[in-house]
Each structure stands twice: as structure tokens, then as C-alpha cells.
Design a protein around this nucleic acid. Structure first.
Lengths: 94, 94
DNA sequence: ATTGACTTGACAAATTTTGACTAAAATAAA
DNA sequence: TTTATTTTAGTCAAAATTTGTCAAGTCAAT
């Protein structure tokens, strides 16, 4: 999800994986995994990517956090119910 | 949240922390932390607790998963947005 | 002051996540 | 097809996180 978006942005600007990896100071193989969702981005990387691609931090961070949320539910039952409950619980806590 | 519910159920049946801990084959201190939300239950423990207290697995697992979801978002920005996005993304994936 | 129930903090053990590296696979260019 | 480049997959150890245990702590009731 965030990985797809990053790939989309990268390809939209015709930047190679290894070039973007260099900008982020990371191994190309690792960035490849991150774009494909095998590994998670770190928040700092998302912020850096927002700068590089002139996207709002909010958009990218939201995608990134949604990914992490879904990852934390992988393989479980009652995911919709739990997400709904988490949402209302969170909103009430504000 | 799930911890509160377990404590409620336990106290409702006048079971001591150490007694329930014994039934779950765990240290009393650990169960104490779990009820208070310091530590997370494992899924097998939730299933066992559903049996012990004659509650539906769905109810307890949903509470448990919602807890884990919220924990995975702790300290982040755009939590509501991400939860909503995670929810719609998940539902579309079905 | 002693007992019983529960809580807390510190530490060690276990598990999971992570990044670097290597090589294989896919893709593109010649 | 060969060669070069880009991407993906697999492995391994280090780092980080989670988990379990124990001892000491609080608090309330006796």
C-alpha cells in the first residue's frame, strides 16, 4: 500500500530503485522489499520520501500507518469488528 | 480494554488473580500486568479465558485485537485516518 | 505487626525484526 | 543470444522488542 504508492511516485519520475535507495542511504535490495511490502518503512524514511516526491506528510504517513495496522491484524479473525472498535474507542479517547 | 473485561469477569466470579493465573499456567505478576494493560495476552490465553468464563470467543478476541491495533498506533499522528483507511482497505480485500 | 492480594521494577531469556550481503531471476540493450 | 542492468529472494547475525521470573513494594483487613 505505502510501498505501491512509493513505487508509483518513483516510476512516475523515472528514478531507479538504486537511485532512490542511494538518496535514502539504504541497500537497494531492502528498498525493493519495502516497496513490495516485504519490509516496513521507518517513519523517518516516509518523511524523507514526502520531501523527495513533494507529497504531503499526512498522505504518506496515513498510508504507512494503515499498513502497519493491517500488518498487526494479519491472519486474525474479526478484523473488521476490531478495526471498528478500535476506531470508536480511539475517537472517544480524544 | 480486554484486560478490563477479564478483570471484570474474574471479579464477578470471585476468583483470585493467583487462581486464574494458575488456571492459565502463568505467573501471577504477569497476569496482573496483562489485566492492567501493561502486557498483552496471547491469543491462546484469550481462547482459554473464553472457556473459563463462558464468553464467546468472538467477543473476547475482538476486544483483544482492538487492543493490539491501538497499541500498534500509539504515539502516531493521523490515527483516525489510518484506521479508517485500514478498514476500507481490508473490507475491499474480502 | 502479620497476613493476603495485588502491583511494580529490574533483569534475563526468548522471540521477532532488521539490515547487509550474495546470488539468482527478470528485464532491457546491443 | 550475449551482455548489462535492475529487481527479487534467501541467509545470517545484530539489534530491538517482547516475555517471563523474581524480589520487593503497597494497601487493606485482621
Amino acid at each position: 500500500m505505502i510501498g505501491d504508492r512509493i513505487r508509483e511516485l518513483r516510476e512516475g519520475e523515472n528514478i531507479l530503485l538504486r537511485q532512490l535507495a542511494a538518496q535514502l542511504d539504504m541497500d537497494t535490495a531492502l528498498l525493493s522489499k519495502m516497496e513490495r511490502g516485504d519490509r516496513q518503512f521507518r517513519k523517518e524514511e516516509i518523511l524523507e520520501l514526502a520531501k523527495i516526491f513533494h507529497q504531503s506528510e499526512k498522505e504518506l504517513l496515513t498510508l504507512w500507518l494503515a499498513d502497519r495496522i493491517l500488518k498487526s491484524t494479519e491472519g486474525e479473525a474479526y478484523i473488521s469488528e476490531a478495526l471498528n472498535l478500535a476506531l470508536t474507542t480511539y475517537q472517544q479517547s480524544l
